[in-house]
Simulated scan of single mutants.
Amino acid sequence: MTIQAHIESLAKKHEDLEDKLHVALSSPSIDDAEILEIKRNKLRLKDQMQKLKSTRH
């Protein structure tokens, strides 16, 4: 897998988590711990993408 393909894969996962977060925030039955976990995962993916982008140049 090329670096660009890996970045795109991570971006898709980040997008999916964004959708999941939106649903979780609009659902009163989701607890704060689950929302926090989604946000942490999004941040982790974003950090990975940034790291890959910086090594690409």
Rank of each mutant, 00 (worst) to 15 (best):
I30F: 02
T2Y: 15
E15Q: 06
K51E: 04
S54H: 10
R40H: 08
A24N: 03
E18P: 07
Q4R: 09
N41F: 01
L10Q: 12
D32K: 11
T2F: 15
E37D: 14
S26C: 05
L43W: 10
R44P: 04
R44H: 09
H6M: 07
P28M: 04
K20A: 10
M1D: 13
R40D: 03
D19N: 11
I35V: 07
A24R: 04
H14M: 08
A11H: 04
S29W: 15
Q50M: 00
D16S: 09
S54N: 10
Q48H: 08
R56W: 11
M1N: 12
D47C: 03
Q50R: 02
I38V: 00
E37N: 10
K12L: 10
H6I: 03
D16Y: 01
M1Y: 07
K20S: 06
A33S: 06
A33K: 05
T2S: 15
N41L: 06
M49Q: 11
A5K: 07
K39Q: 13
L17Q: 05
Q50H: 04
K53D: 08
P28K: 08
Q4G: 05
H14E: 08
L36H: 01
D19R: 12
R40C: 07
S54A: 14
D31M: 02
V23L: 11
R56Y: 13
L17K: 02
N41E: 10
K51G: 00
D31L: 01
S9V: 00
N41W: 01
A11C: 00
K53C: 06
T2C: 15
E34P: 03
S27C: 02
D19K: 14
R44V: 07
P28N: 06
L36P: 00
A33I: 00
N41I: 04
K13P: 04
M49D: 09
R56S: 10
Q50L: 01
K39M: 09
P28F: 12
K51C: 01
K51F: 03
I38C: 00
D32A: 12
E34I: 04
D16V: 06
H6C: 06
D31Q: 05
M1R: 12
E18M: 13
I3Y: 13
V23T: 13
K53Y: 12
H22A: 11
A24L: 01
H22R: 13
A11D: 08
I3S: 15
K53E: 15
S27Q: 03
L36I: 00
L10Y: 13
P28Q: 04
K20Q: 02
E37F: 11
H22L: 07
D31W: 06
A24I: 00
T55C: 05
L36R: 04
I30G: 01
H22D: 15
H14A: 12
K53T: 07
T2M: 15
L17V: 04
H6Q: 06
D16W: 01
S27K: 01
K42H: 03
E37A: 14
Q48P: 06
E18L: 13
A5I: 02
E34M: 08
M1Q: 11
A33N: 05
N41R: 05
L21R: 05
N41A: 11
D16L: 14
L52H: 09
K20L: 12
R56M: 14
D47M: 06
H6Y: 05
T2V: 09
R44E: 13
V23A: 10
L45D: 00
I35Q: 15
